[in-house]
């Protein structure tokens, strides 16, 4: 019996009552084609994948492959987002279309943006949209700023997960304020997932070591030199970070070394007895 495997098997991410083995959620944007998207998603081990909702090109669709053929909803939990929405109203409309598109599927990623340069969330509009969506039966995972008070408000409104940014969307700048993420994790009871800003594997591991319940990323994988390989790296990083969190790291001792080798039994110093 392998003990670590046993621990991992019991350690599931639960969102809106549904259990997931993977704590890595991935986006499907910015890949070369659907085949690369599918291979990267497979390598990441992700069970939840985000998609965007957009107008279809009229008159250019005959035989055109579709994303949901590459990533069938029967195999993956499809998480439609509201990327590109700047008002609560547009976000709600987009997710109602998504629910119709996905046969009544209720789990959604809400993001209401504040401006096109930073893609920082507009929190008043996010809160307003969350309220409407929860009342309408949606299970809302909300992209948000790393303000612990607003994150708590999203939980209190009924969001099933809260997803603060690590840094700006697509920036790859990593975790700029681990302290706020830690406060949010400690104060909320719903899953807290870091969404946006991850650049490389160590960023994902740090998010998990902070105690976050999961990580959502897209560009860090899609824009890596080898996306499929980076997807595997992110899978390993999320698993390693989670295991390190559960194992509880040693305390930091900045002013005091502690030898790992025995102090006794050293051979005699030169000239000694």
């Amino acid at each position: 019996m392998n003990a670590p495997e046993k621990i991992a098997a019991q350690d599931e991410l639960v969102i809106a009552g549904k259990r997931y083995r993977s704590r890595l959620l991935v986006g499907t944007g910015k890949y070369r084609d659907f085949d690369e998207t599918r291979r990267a998603v497979e390598a990441s081990g992700a069970e939840i994948v985000t998609v965007a909702i957009r107008r279809t090109n009229i008159g250019q669709n005959a035989g055109e492959p579709s994303l949901l053929d590459a990533l069938p909803p029967s195999r993956f939990t499809i998480l439609p987002n509201t990327a590109g929405c700047y008002t609560a109203e547009d976000a709600v409309r987009t997710l109602r279309l998504a629910r119709e598109l996905l046969d009544g599927h209720a789990l959604v990623k809400l993001e209401v943006l504040g401006d096109p340069q930073t893609l920082f969330p507009n929190m008043p509009e996010t809160l307003a949209a969350a309220k409407t969506l929860v009342a309408d039966g949606f299970q809302v995972m909300a992209y948000c700023s790393d303000d612990p008070i607003l994150a708590k408000e999203l939980q209190d409104l009924g969001c099933v997960a809260v997803m603060p940014l690590a840094s700006l969307i697509g920036s790859g700048m990593g975790i700029l304020n681990p302290w706020n993420l830690r406060i949010i994790r400690d104060r909320l009871s719903v899953p807290v997932l870091v969404d946006a800003g991850i650049g490389t594997a160590s960023d994902a591991a740090i998010a998990m070591e902070l105690g976050c319940d999961g990580v959502l990323m897209n560009t860090a994988i899609a824009k890596a030199g080898e996306p499929v390989r980076m997807a595997n790296a992110m899978k390993l990083a999320v698993e390693a970070g989670r295991e390190a969190f559960l194992a509880r790291r040693m305390p930091k001792k900045p002013y005091e070394a502690a030898a790992s080798s025995p102090q006794a039994g050293l051979i005699a110093p030169v000239g000694g007895a």
């Binding site: 499907t28 944007g29 119709e100």
Partner: peptide, 29 residues
């Protein structure tokens, strides 16, 4: 601005001046 359920596609008729949005799922983060 209102969803037209697929179950109603066969019977629901368009009216002059309707503004229609037709959407699909695409890659996104």
């Amino acid at each position: 601005g209102e969803i037209v359920p697929r179950s109603r596609f066969g019977e629901a008729r368009l009216a002059d001046g309707d503004r229609i949005e037709v959407v699909i799922a695409v890659g996104g983060g």
